[in-house]
Design a binder for these strands. Structure first.
Length: 300
RNA sequence: GGCGACUUAGCCAAGUGGUAAGGCAGGGGACUGCAAAUCCCUCAUCCCGGGUUCGAUUCCCGGAGUCGCCU
């Protein structure tokens, strides 16, 4: 199995397609946003042309009204992975979401959890008004979880408490023992300034591919584009544009910046993984990258 | 040409006679359950010259630039 990782915009899909064509493989996308249907442009999901006939799993498979997290993602990914192997194909994971890839490959013991929206809303309200108190409660209920969490990070504190309370409400959700999946990891990267230029250009391209229209139809369907699943996608900004509260150029600038910030965070995440073999895509031609990756696969 | 205001980091922006808030961007980092999210760390000597003063970014004079008004 091969995992191709790297920041948004480096060209993971193109390399994955090349490898699949050369070696007979299928792509499994590990991306927390491209899983959703209806935000293809905003999430820069691979198009039919991008894929050049190669099968690509886990893109556009959830309704925009649904939610994902690492546990749900690996629950979906495992059977897909198994099927690709049964078919005798090479599984090529393209991963932008580091946590999900880690959860899948290292088989993190994420048990189930019964969602409880009211509880969740209550916790978020409390986090907004008195985060320290909420953290104190977490320390009381689950000292181990509390010890692993940044007390200043409201998202983490809320989620940890939600999990603790959710598991208590549903004791049947046992956590499985980890069974790590071996994989060759290749990281694609580029000089920062080049990467940022690509991102800026890509945001412009998204406009031409119907980014605004996409958000308009989400709004028309009555889906609130500000819901959590769309956070940070530029969907919220675009909705402001559609509703006449933000200038298009401003939205474009904001989204470019957010995307650059995201790419930087991805790089930080993946850099910490010593198993990744890095390839600077600006120093190696497209077909050479595919050759290199193929050689690495053959050696193992 | 005259009068007035302004001039603080890449951008926005507070402020004080004793050596400069904050936000954004940038850089670094954390992240085993919302991760395109969230959080942490880091980043200036205050337009130039002269003067007053123990000490000036802060006061005074001159210069430059920007903006506004007037002729």
């Amino acid at each position: 199995m091969l995992a191709i990782v790297g920041p948004t915009g480096v060209g993971k899909t193109a390399v994955a397609v090349g490898v699949c064509q050369a070696m007979g493989g299928e792509i499994i996308s590990i991306d927390s946003r491209q899983v959703f249907r209806g935000i293809e442009v905003a999430s820069n999901a691979p198009t039919v042309e991008d894929l050049g006939g190669i099968r690509c799993h886990l893109v556009g498979v959830l309704e925009p009204s649904e939610k994902v997290d690492a546990a749900r993602y690996i629950k979906m990914a495992r059977p897909v992975l198994a099927q690709v192997r049964i078919d005798g194909s090479l599984a090529v994971l393209t991963a932008g979401t580091g946590l999900y890839l880690k959860a899948l490959l290292e088989d993190l013991p994420l048990g189930g959890m019964t969602p409880r929206p009211e509880e969740r809303a209550r916790l978020e309200a409390r986090a907004a008004s008195d985060l320290p108190a909420l953290f104190a409660e977490l320390e009381r209920l689950d000292p181990k979880a509390a010890g692993a969490i940044d007390p200043k990070n409201p998202v983490r504190v809320v989620r940890a408490l939600e999990l603790v309370l959710g598991r208590a409400a549903d004791a049947s959700q046992a956590t499985p023992a980890p069974r790590p999946i071996p994989a060759i990891k290749v990281g694609l990267t580029a000089p920062r300034d080049v990467l940022y230029q690509w991102i800026d250009a890509r945001v412009g391209g998204m406009l031409e591919r119907g980014w605004r229209e996409e958000v308009e139809s989400l709004l028309a369907m009555g889906i609130d584009p500000r819901r959590q699943a769309f956070s940070g996608l530029g969907v919220a900004e675009m909705a402001e544009v559609v509703e006449g509260r933000m200038a298009l150029d401003e939205a474009r600038a904001v989204i470019s910046t957010k995307t650059r910030n995201y790419a930087k965070r991805q790089l930080t995440w993946f850099r910490a993984d010593p198993e990744i073999e890095w390839i600077d895509v600006t120093a190696t031609g497209g077909s050479d990258i595919v050759d290199r990756v193929s050689t690495m696969l053959a050696k193992k």
